[in-house]
């Protein structure tokens, strides 16, 4: 599965970067099929048929060279640190404040005899933040299995529900308590954003969960669920990279993972060389971007516009 994913990813990167397309013939074929559907549904044929002329796209868009170079540099840095992390197990990340709170939260739930609630974001499993949330779910699941605390997971998409079930099954197995795992405690609620928020709010208030984890990609529902959770007195830990939702989590949660700390947390907890190497590669990419900004600032000050124009993307 990993190699299939990786190969599709690489193909996608190359195609999308240079907009290599075989769309011309497909475009015409699809238009003809649309007419066939109209005929099949016994609709009258249009009096005029405009088959739009397929636009000829160049094989390579050279104005995208800067994007390609950036991707090569970032990929090279990430792959380098991936390689180093696999070979050198002493590579670590700095301690992230808020991760100790996971043990504290689960411990408190165990003392109170109340369940833990985990919401891995309000987007689907194809989003990067959701994947990071699921990695932390794995850790929380392990802790809950160890302390024999019930864990409720509420999701907004069926695919995420099944992925979460898989992850938790594995966590409970690793903790040596597969008997405690119940797939029914991982629920798919609804696709609708605010219906999902209403369901979470209702669950928190009625079940009186002792600890809440809101980790993943959130939007407007973040304020609703974190504020409602705050009124129940539960300990709340949140994490999202959506900067516009962070203020609400910061105001109503006990601990918040800000932005990229979410991704670093999943690497820190799992200690997997792949995740560690990725974070370290990104860190040095950020250092490079900072250097570019400093250089660009100097260029803007002294009027070296060519340097700045190289970063033009449109």
């Amino acid at each position: 599965m990993k190699s299939l994913s990786l190969s599709l990813f690489i193909i996608g990167v190359i195609f999308c970067t240079f907009q290599i397309s075989f769309g011309n013939s497909i475009s015409t074929k699809v238009q003809i099929d649309s007419l066939k559907i109209a005929v099949n549904n016994q609709q009258s044929l249009p009096s005029k048929v405009h088959l739009s002329k397929p636009e000829i796209q160049p094989l390579f868009k050279t104005e995208r060279l800067n994007v390609f170079i950036f991707l090569i540099i970032i990929s090279a840095l990430v792959l380098t640190f991936l390689f180093l992390a696999k070979r050198n197990h002493s590579l670590t990340l700095r301690k992230i404040a808020g991760l100790d709170a996971i043990d504290e939260a689960v411990g408190r739930a165990a003392e109170m005899g109340r369940p833990v609630l985990f919401v891995p974001g309000s987007m689907d499993v194809d989003r990067i933040q959701t994947l990071a949330g699921i990695a932390i779910l794995s850790k929380v699941g392990y802790e809950c299995a160890t302390y024999e605390v019930d864990l409720d997971v509420m999701t907004r998409f069926p695919l995420l529900m099944s992925t979460s079930q898989e992850i938790l099954r594995q966590s409970y197995l690793t903790a040596g308590r597969p008997d405690l795992f119940s797939p029914d405690r991982v629920q798919y609620i609804t696709d609708n954003q605010f219906a999902f928020a209403a369901a979470i709010t209702g669950h928190m208030v009625r079940v009186k969960t002792a600890a809440h984890f809101f980790i993943g990609e959130f939007y407007a529902e973040s304020l609703v669920i974190s504020e409602a959770g705050n009124t129940t007195g539960a300990i709340q830990i949140a994490g999202t990279a959506n900067s516009h939702q962070l203020p609400f989590f910061l105001a109503s949660c006990d601990y918040t993972l800000i932005g990229e700390e979410l991704f670093a947390a999943s690497a820190y907890l799992s200690r997997e060389p792949i995740l560690l190497g990725t974070i370290l590669g990104q860190d040095w990419s950020k250092a490079l971007f900072g250097l570019l900004i400093v250089l660009g600032t100097l260029a803007a000050w002294f009027g070296w516009t060519d340097f700045i124009h190289w970063f033009q993307t449109e």
């Binding site: 599965m1 299939l4 990786l6 599709l8 990813f9 995208r64 994007v67 499993v125």
Partner: peptide, 18 residues
């Protein structure tokens, strides 16, 4: 799932980088 995640990540990576 692998196809979904792989293609989604590739599309997002180019769009967000640019």
């Amino acid at each position: 799932i692998a196809i979904y995640i792989g293609v989604g990540a590739a599309l997002n990576m180019i769009q967000y980088t640019q």
